[in-house]
Amino acid sequence: MSHVTDLPVWAAILVCGLTVLGAAIALIGSVGLLRFTSFYERLHAPTLATSGGVLLICTASIICFAVLQSRWVFHEILIIVFVLVTTPMTLMLLGQAALYRDRVEEKHGVPLKQRPPREEPVE
């Protein structure tokens, strides 16, 4: 049974550095989620975790398993691709929902609907 402590020194340094850096980026993103004052600013915070954090930690995982099992294991790429493709959809939908709700309540400082009222068809 192989263990993470069996890694050679260069791989261990790489794996540790990438993991800690990725976790730090995810933590910074969450701090942003906590600190920002308006919803539209908070919308930017999770993208830190989903781009930087996921990329770095998945790379660390790929290196770790590739060295330990001495064969290339790429299935972490699935997580990277999946998260990179799906998070924009969630955030776009949330942004649109927030815009819709703020417009219904006629909040201040929210851009109005761009389209002019529909014109009557000409007889």
Binding site: V4, F39, R42, P46, C64, F65, V83, T90, L94, R101
Partner: peptide, 27 residues
């Protein structure tokens, strides 16, 4: 409500990263 959903989204992303670090730790 949208803030809560955003929090949930971030929560599960971080949980996924946590699981990956557990995977590295236990190989």
């Amino acid at each position: 409500a949208q803030d809560r959903i955003l929090g949930l989204d971030t929560l599960y992303i971080n949980a996924m990263l946590m699981l990956l670090t557990f995977g590295i730790r236990t190989a």
